[in-house]
Amino acid sequence: MNIAGELGIVYALLGAAVAVLFAGCGSAIGVGIAGQAASGVVTEDPSKFAKVLIIQLLPGTQGLYGLLVGFITLSKIGILGGGTADVSVSTGLLILAACLPIGIVGLLSGIAQGRTAAAAIGIVAKKPEQFGKAMLFPAMVETYAILALLVSFLAVNGIQV
């Protein structure tokens, strides 16, 4: 097997891995932080379970965005279809670069959203009637994950293999 000749596909796969791994880690950490806060509230007041669960899930979307970009990348390079495409090194690097936005922004925004969600769970703990407003604060962080998803999605789609 000629490793140098396969480098293109290696870079492309690395791109898919970056998207899924980093964004997934961001979500896992974020959901974990929010989950700690949710557990604290439910320990004292189990009736708030549904509300805090919804807020806890908000940082989970980054992982899904990473998964989406990962799927598109795998599909683009033919891994999913069974017939691996002939990917040059430059195309492989382009795909890796295209995957970076959702990977990096997914990681950081997932953590930030988790912290905001934990604070928002504090609002629900004290004023459950303000649930709608409490949802908005972590949802704001989502904007930047969506922007990164958009760029990664368009970039991966735009690369000709």
Partner: peptide
């Protein structure tokens, strides 16, 4: 991320502050 060890405790205290 490193300073999240009080997350559970603070949320529980938030729920108790109501009383």
């Amino acid at each position: 991320m490193s300073n999240t060890k009080y997350t559970y405790a603070v949320a529980r205290i938030r729920a108790l502050e109501v009383s």
